[in-house]
Every structure is written in C-alpha cells, then in structure tokens.
Nucleic acid binder design. Structure first.
Length: 887
RNA sequence: GGGCCGUUGGCGCAGGGGUAGCGCGCUUCCUUGACACGGAAGAGGUCACUGGUUCAAAUCCAGUACGGCCCACCA
C-alpha cells in the first residue's frame, strides 16, 4: 500500500429520485457480469487475503444466524479487497454426514447399501418426498448412486443458498465452490487420511467405544452432550464369598456378609466385573482383595481399591461393569479386569450370557433379559431383585447427567468395537502441548474465545474416533486381505495409490485382485466404515485451496488468513482443522479466527427451529432491504450474542436511504458546475475554514475506521463512520447549502463543492463494506467501475500537499451555534424557515475564534440577520437571546 | 464442581478513574426546493449489590446475586 491510489471521478449524473428498490438484483447481476469478486489466480501470497468460509449444511435451512455471521465475514472481505488485497473468498457446501443422509433418504425414498454394485441407470422411486418414509419402503442403492443423488439434491439446495447470499451481497467468488462430498473433497479427505496412516497418526483399535444405539454408530468425544435424565438408585447387596465368617450383620438371611452398592443401572449386573472403593475408605479396608457374588447371576468378582472411587457418592462402593460409563472403562483398563459385554449394536441385551455367568441360576436369570432393550431389562432385573430379596428398599429417583450423541435421542452405550482413531493430543502429551501452542499462535477475535479452545484440548481423554458405522460419507480408502477362513486381516490393510483417489472400497477393487475375489477366502474385503463428517470438514482449508491438485493456488492461499465461525463449533471444526494442518502442514490452517455469537430472539433465547421463532432470511431481506439487514448484523460485535431486532434494520434502512439522498444533493452541485466529463477534486480548492474543519474531522474518522477494521472490529468502524455521517448531513450540509449555491461568490462555492465531493468520495468508500448496494448505486452516478474495487480511503487524499489540517472544532462549534438558533425556533414552535432578526449566543471563550470562522455559514443556515457571539466562561454553547420574525 | 462472558434510561447497545453517551421508542413542533422511508428541539439513568484501593470509582480490586454459554467420571 506504499503507492496508494486515489479514485478518479467523473462529472455526476444524478437521478431525479433515488430508491433502494431493486438494487440487490441490479448490482448482483452487474458484479457477476463484471467478475468483481473473482479471485485473480497467480497473485502472490502476500497480496492475498484468503477466507475459509464455513460450508453451511445445505440440507438444513437457511436462518438468520447465517445472515448475521456471514455478513461479518463479508465486511472484512470487502475491506481487505479495498485495501488492495486479492481476496480468495470461496464457498463450500456441507452435504456430508447424517443430516444429508436422512434428507436424501426421505426425498428420493432410497437408502444407501454399500454392498450393492453401482447401477448407472438407476432412477429413484420418489422425487421430492417429504417427511419420513419407512425404512422398509426405501429402495436400497449403491453408495455411488446415493452420493450422486446427494449431489443432485444438494445442487437444488445450493441454488437457494446462493440466491440468498447474492441477495445479501456477500462478495463471494462464485467460481470457487466445493461440496464436502464431491470428488475433490473425497479425494482430499482420503489423501490426508493415507498420509496420517503412513505417519502412524491414524490407527485402528478394538476398544470400548461410545455408541449410539439409534444410529448404530460410534461417536467421538466432540459430539457428546450431557443431558439431565431421570433415573433411580437401586441399593443392591453383594454377598461375600470367601475368607469371611458368616456375617452377623445380615441376620435376615443368615448368609455371608453383604456389601451394598447403589446403581442406576441394575440391568448391567451380568456385566459386573468388580466392586471398587477408594483406597483410603475405612469402611471397605477389610474387603479389598476379597470376592463377592453378583446377585441373580452368580458371577464372582473382586473388590478392588481405586482412586477414582468417590467415598461420598452412593454407598461409596461402586460396581464396575463392561461398560456402564467411561469411568468403568478406566477401571477396566487400569486394573486389567475381564470383559463381560452384554449389549449389542442395537442396544439390546445380547442373546448369550458373557463368560462368568456360568451357574444354572445365573444363566436362567440372563435368559430373562436376552433380547430386551436396556429399558425393559432394567425393569425386569428390578423385579427379579425384589423377588430374590437382593435389593434393599425401593429405587430412589434421582436426576443425573447422562451422555448423549448430540443428534441422538437415547443415552450412549459403551460397546467394544474396532474403530479408526486419529491422534489429536488426547493420548499423546507432546502433541497436546503442540496443539495448545497452536491455539496461542492463532489470533482470536475476540481473544477470550481462545480459552474455550484451551479448555477443550486440556480436557481431551482419548484420540479422535473418526470411523462411523454409516453408509453415506467418505469411505476409508482401505481394503483387507481375507484369510482362508473368510476373516479380514485387519493389521495388513491394502491401500490405494494416491493417484487413484477417491476410491470406494465397497465397489472398487484393489490392485492385484479381481472383483470376484471380494469377500472370498484368499481374496479381499473393503473397510465398511465411513469417516466422521468432521474428518472431511477439518480439511476445508486444504480442500478450498486445492492442496491436493493445484500447487499454485495452494501456494498463494494457504495457510488461510481468516476462519470465521460460530462459537459452538470451536471444539469440532476449529480444533479438528488445527489438528489436521498441524499433522500435515506443520502450521496453522489459518491465522485469524473470527467467532460470531448467536442470534437471540426477543426473549433472550437462542433462536431455533424447534421453538418456531425463526424468520426466513429471504423474507427479512425482502422486507427491509439487504443493506438494512447487514446494518443490523454489523452493529453486533464478534463473539457477542445479538438480539434479533427489526428496529436496528429500520435504522439501517434509514441510513441507506440517507446515503442516497445526501449523495444526490452533494453531487448535484458537481453535476451543475464546470464542463467536461472528468471531475477534478483538488483539496487545494478547499479554502473556507468550515470546509477544512469538516475534512479534518473526516481524516480522524478514516483513521479510526481503518484501524478498527484491520482489527476485525466492524462495529467501531461503522459507529465512527455513521456518527460522522449524520453530523455531515445535519450540520455541515445545512451550513454550506447556500454557499455551495453561490451565495458567497464562486471561490467560496467551489470550496464547499469540492469539500462535499471529497467527503462523499471518502464516506461512500467507508460505508461500502457495510452497505454495498446503496454505496455502489451512488458510486455509479459518477464512476464506471465498482466502488468495491476502489482503494480504501486514506487521510492524505483530503489535504493538499503538506498543508496543515483544518481545525475540527470549527465544525463542532458551528453546529452547536446552529443548534442554539434552531432551539429558539423550536421553542417558539416556529418553522425552521423563520427569520431571526437578531440573536446572541454564548460561546466558551476558547471556541470564539473557531465560531467566528464559520459565522457567515451559521447565519445563512440559521436565517439570522444579526448574530452576536459572546465569549463566555461556561463550557457549552448557549442561546442568550433571539428575536424571531414570522416569514 | 471448574471456566468464560455479561448486568449502564422502557428496549437494544457504546464507553471505561475526574460534570453519564448513542440509537429505537416517547413528548412537542416543522409539509424548508437532498430526503415525510424526512427534519428540529426535548423529557428520561444514584451505570446489579456489598466491601476495598484512591483526593476522586459506573470505570480498578475482592466478594455476592442474577442471566447466558462452555467444560466436568452417568456408581
């Protein structure tokens, strides 16, 4: 920016009437035709500003929150573009994952069945199906067909999103788009995975896994939410079986001493592998090392000490099951307890009892539960405990937090399964430290959001589970050899070459095999799983910049400059992107993160579809106009939740209209005067003190706005610009009106006209990121090219050479004196056109000279024939006396 | 249980050691040739509470209350 350009101007052609109506369509078409926002390939990295736009879920609906946060990003994009950066502003569509899977199922009446071969001529049974259709009615289709249908449907959805974004005035480069399920994204995702695998960052493990029984898939830590659930403590007695004389504490039965535990999950009794208490818990010292018998099922389990047992929870001694919760997993792992899994993938009790439930009585009891859901099993077990007398008292109802998949409706279970993991610092302390350092390296707007990242990284308990037992998504690019018994050999994966990507192992055949060997002994089998949707979304910087296949574009755009996103996905999208870039590029994926808040409805609740308080963005844009809606969005700071407020939109609309009208007026002088098409606005022509004062004040506004926008503080920039603009309209324009018309001679008129032109040129550019339509409309009256590719204003363009700046106090005090004169008329309930024959206004002593400098303009604007400016020792300008005459 | 934000006129917000600011709304007035989708002038607040630091606290510190969000091992 060393060689800063000033815009050149033409003699304006001002319309009779100015209106906001239809500007969105008009300018969207013009920008599209002119390629105003198209990224220039081959730009050097230092001249590029690249943005990792959040890909909206196209199967979801567009909502006001999108408008809000995407506007914040666009303001920065427009500012950077005007500052001379070539802005890389692509658009992605997220059509990967469960929401799309469900939408495609319902819309086309199909379901994905990866084992089917691809049929290129497939036509879906439905088109435009709404609501749910039963699984039984859905026609199974191959994964490739499903992906094709998804792409087709997404294309329809994308059109609506694109139309809305264009209407809103987002300066996106529509030639740079991607879909998270498209060929390029799948290839990128698989390529990154293969690299992770080669470096040992991705690995498979058979381990207890958080499992959603509805979707029948594993889920990751990042997808968990706690929800309060009602449950009940069941107090259950376990009988000591060894080394203990018949207890006198349990005279009822006369049997061995009983140990009471309290559990909310009695149905897991057959999965019990131990009882655990805190090592220092005096009550249980004698029991450590001894064994007890599990009621009903007869399994013998040890009583063991562990630091994670909480003495004041329940009875202080807990039963360890495989697996009731994540603490069970820790106990099981650390104390090398056996595994007695009793839950299947569908969340029902497995048909066969686990090892250890050997007695006839135990097997009979288990048979009662086999095939039941956990809910029914719990009821049955409770009945059985009641009958056998092993339960003391009745269950005590409680409310407690339970882990759920964020999209799920039933509590998660923990089931041992084989899964793919990716290192994310959950187990590797060195990596964790490095990722924490990345969080420090990243610049956060606002800064306090960094803490959420830190909290999350510090709280990780395991690596990132990236495999999902779903059908739709990016498949793992992996096959396995099949041994002579027909079993896959998991530790000898067969991988594709990078140039073969993307592959679908369910339909593609690995090199060296024939398709008919699929699933056969001695043949091969594809990995059945797909990747977590975040495993692909975490790569949006690499996808958008074409890391995989366009080194030139990648070099000039990666790492990206800006990641704008919502605060709720710091732990998922942002963190996972940092992980991937750290592992692959050894850098941050982006330098700055701008975090937008949520939209709250008037009741201060987060807006959401389920509450029915969502306003559709298009209706909003139509009603208020895009510049108005953008104004509302722009008036909320990053990281701060904002109220949905139509009032702010009205203010924004008023501002846009004012920009049109004030410009029309100011430019009318320049249209009328002089000759020739070119218009020269030379600051040297600004000779009147009031005019220089106004320009001096504007210089400060430029500085404030520029600095604010460079720091992603759009609200401050808007506030400074807007506040100046209203003074400019209400005071300055009124003050110079008659002089600009020539009342004080040609030179004084030229001074006002030039100052109006210079100020307008700057103000329009300052407003351009916020109000792209109104400013572009006005700009078109005196320019051929778009305002959005103009140089951002600098103070120097308002001053001739090395001349001293004007004194901004002149404008301030002139406005105050004019206000005093207006007050006289207002209090007399008279029109502003009323003549004042004589008036005296008290002016603070140090402001008398500045006031005198603008006296002629003040008298003209106030229609005052005789004005006395009396020096006073008060701090404010005050009307002392005025004599009014009716016109 | 831990953490992060916030609490300023009826509403939405800014400010941040030295007489409280903006916008909406409200009141009164003005159909003035840029704008009635306008303009002018007003009324309205002991800046959540309690202590402390200071010559001086809405502002800094500590604590409390309330609201929101994030995280946390479901016995």
């Amino acid at each position: 920016m060393s060689q800063h350009q000033y815009p050149s101007h033409q003699r304006p052609t001002v319309p009779e009437r100015a209106s906001l109506d239809g500007l969105e369509g008009k300018w969207d078409r013009a920008w599209s035709a002119q390629g105003t926002y198209v990224f220039k390939l081959g730009t050097a990295r230092e001249d590029v500003f690249s943005i990792d736009t959040p890909p909206p879920t196209v199967s979801g609906s567009l909502h006001v929150g999108h408008v809000f946060s995407y506007t914040h990003t666009d303001i920065i994009a427009r500012f950077q573009r005007m500052c001379g950066k070539e802005v890389f502003y692509p658009m992605g569509w997220d059509d990967n994952g469960l929401p799309t899977e469900r939408r495609v199922q319902n819309y086309y009446g199909v379901r994905c069945e990866p084992s089917l071969p691809y049929d290129p001529d497939f036509t879906p049974p439905l088109e435009g199906g709404k609501g749910k259709n039963a699984t039984s009615q859905q026609v199974p289709v191959s994964r490739q067909s499903f992906v094709e249908l998804c792409e087709k449907l997404s294309t329809e959805d994308e059109k609506q999103f694109e139309a809305a974004w264009r209407h809103l005035g987002l300066s996106i480069d529509w030639t740079q788009t991607y879909q998270t399920i498209d060929h390029h994204s799948r290839a990128t995702s698989q390529l990154a995975f293969l690299r992770n695998l080669a470096r040992g960052e991705a690995y498979q493990r058979l381990a207890p896994t958080l499992w959603d029984v509805t979707f029948r898939t594993a889920v990751a830590q990042a997808e968990l939410v706690d929800r309060d659930q009602t449950g009940a403590y069941h107090r259950i007695g376990f009988r000591l079986t060894d080394g203990q004389p018949a207890a006198d504490t349990d005279t009822d039965t006369g049997a061995g001493q009983r140990v009471y535990i309290e559990t909310t999950r009695p149905e897991l009794l057959p999965a019990c592998v131990a009882l655990v208490a805190h090592p220092s818990d005096e009550r249980y010292q004698d029991l450590f090392g001894k064994h007890v018998e599990v009621p009903l099922f007869g399994t013998e389990v040890p009583v063991v000490p562990h630091r994670l047992a909480t003495p004041d929870k329940g009875s202080g001694i807990a039963m360890v099951c495989t697996f009731g919760d994540v603490t069970d997993v820790i106990w099981w792992r650390e104390m090398h307890l056996p595994t007695r899994a009793i839950l299947g993938w569908d969340g029902r009790i497995l048909p066969e009892p686990p090892m250890g439930v050997d007695s006839d009585r135990g097997q009979a009891a288990y048979k009662e539960l086999a095939g039941l859901t956990v809910y029914s099993a719990q009821k049955r077990v409770t009945e059985m405990l009641r009958e056998s007398g092993d339960m003391e008292g009745e269950p005590k109802p409680i409310t407690h937090p339970v882990k759920f998949f964020e999209k799920g409706e039933k509590p998660l279970e923990i089931i041992p399964t084989r899964q793919w993991y990716l290192s994310n610092g959950g187990t590797d302390q060195e990596l964790r430290a490095r990722l924490l350092e990345r969080g420090n390296e990243l610049t956060w707007y606002p800064d306090f959001m960094r803490v959420r990242y830190q909290n999350w990284v510090e709280g990780l308990t395991s690596d990132w589970l990236i495999s999902r037992q779903r059908f739709f998504g990016v498949p793992f690019p992996v096959w396995y050899p099949v041994d002579q018994f027909g079993h896959p050999i998991h530790d000898r994966p067969i991988l594709p070459r990078e140039d073969q990507l993307p592959v679908d192992p369910a339909s593609d055949t690995p090199d060296g095999y024939k398709p008919e060997q699929r699933g056969k002994p001695g043949g091969f089998i594809g990995d059945p799983d797909v990747m977590d949707t975040w495993a692909t979304s975490s790569l949006t910087p690499q996808i958008a910049t074409h890391w995989r296949d366009d080194p030139d574009l990648y070099e000039s755009t990666f790492p990206m400059d800006l990641r704008p996103q919502a605060q709720d996905i710091i732990r998922t999208w942002l963190f996972s992107a940092v992980v991937r870039a750290d592992l692959e590029q050894h850098s941050l994926p982006f330098h700055n993160a701008a975090i937008s808040g949520f939209i709250l409805d008037p009741d201060r609740k987060k807006m959401s579809k389920s509450k029915g308080n969502v306003v559709t963005p298009m209706a909003l844009l139509d009603q208020h106009g895009s510049d108005a809606v953008r104004y509302w969005a722009a008036s909320a700071r990053l990281g701060t939740d904002a109220a949905f407020e139509p009032g702010q939109m009205k203010v924004g609309r008023r501002l846009a209209i004012k920009i049109l009208n004030a410009s029309k007026f100011a430019l009318s002088f320049l249209a009328a005067s002089g000759s020739g098409a070119a218009l020269t606005l030379d600051p040297a022509d600004v000779t009147e003190p009031l005019d220089s004062a106004m320009l001096a004040a504007l210089e400060t506004v430029i500085e404030t706005a520029t600095q604010a926008l460079a720091n992603y503080d759009h609200t401050r920039a808007l506030e400074a610009t807007e506040s100046f603009f209203w003074t400019f309209c209400d005071d300055y324009i009124e003050l110079v009106k008659s002089r600009a018309h020539g009342a004080a001679g040609p030179q004084a008129a030229a001074s006002a006209q030039t100052a109006l032109g210079l100020a307008l040129s700057v103000l329009l550019r300052l407003f351009a990121p916020f109000q792209p339509f109104a400013t572009e409309e006005v700009w078109s009256w005196w320019h051929d090219d778009s305002i959005h590719r103009q140089p951002w204003p600098v103070p120097a363009e308002l001053r001739a050479g090395s001349s001293a700046p004007g004194d901004p106090r002149i404008l301030a005090v002139a406005g105050a004196v004019l206000g005093a004169l207006r007050k006289a008329k207002s209090e007399a309930k008279m029109s502003m056109r009323t003549e004042i024959t004589a008036a005296t206004v008290a002016v603070p002593a140090d402001l008398t000279a500045p006031a005198v400098a603008a006296k002629a303009d003040v008298m003209a604007a106030g229609r005052t024939a005789e004005l006395t400016l009396a020096a006073s020792d008060t701090e404010a300008v005050e009307l002392i006396f005025a004599e009014l005459t009716q016109p």
